[in-house]
């Protein structure tokens, strides 16, 4: 099965890779581009650990083929911090102890950022439903939800 050449943009950088048409975007990010911050927890779109943005839309990278990335813009956890400056969500996750094992954390952060980009002032219920596709088995979600709400509040204050 011959591979297909793909040119795409990841976290603002133009990149190229060769993909077997059966490979998912998740496989390509991890195995071809060494971007291992995006995790595989299920491979069926049920856990959200592989969350990335595709042209700004939040998706599971396990449900996108690598070859579909041609000409698109991908955002991953590695692009969340701006240089040395952590995104407020990243700081708040550490501050609130919103991670235990940390494996689901990249997916939660990417998904939460997509929420706050769309809705800067979500209710607790909105946060919980938006993040329902991100499984965490360690925390019971309590501290994650608090961290997202707190980051949103800080970002609203900064925006004023």
């Amino acid at each position: 099965m011959s591979k297909i050449h793909v040119t795409t943009t990841v976290n603002g950088d133009s990149v190229e890779f060769l993909a077997d048409p059966r490979e998912t975007l998740l496989d390509c990010l991890r195995d071809h581009l060494d971007l291992t911050g995006t995790k595989e927890g299920c491979g069926t779109g049920d856990c959200g650990a592989c969350s990335v943005t595709l042209d700004g839309t939040l998706v599971c990278s396990c449900l996108v083929l690598g070859i579909e990335a041609e000409g698109r813009e991908i955002g991953t956890i590695e692009g969340l911090a701006q240089g040395h400056e952590l995104h407020p969500l990243q700081r708040k996750f550490i501050e609130h102890a919103a991670l235990q094992c940390g494996f689901c954390t990249p997916g939660f952060l990417v998904a939460a950022k997509a929420l706050l980009d769309k809705n800067p002032n979500p209710t607790e219920t909105e946060v919980r439903y938006w993040l329902a596709g991100n499984l965490c088995r360690c925390t019971g979600y309590d501290k994650i939800v608090r961290a997202v709400m707190d980051a949103a509040e800080e970002m609203r204050k900064e925006a004023v």
Binding site: G37, K39, E78, L86, Q90, I94, G102, L109
Partner: peptide, 16 residues
């Protein structure tokens, strides 16, 4: 936590 930064930036290296 000391490993917090690695774990919110995707740098922490897990099994795979």
């Amino acid at each position: 936590r000391p490993d917090g930064l690695d774990k919110v930036t995707g740098r922490a290296r897990y099994g795979a």
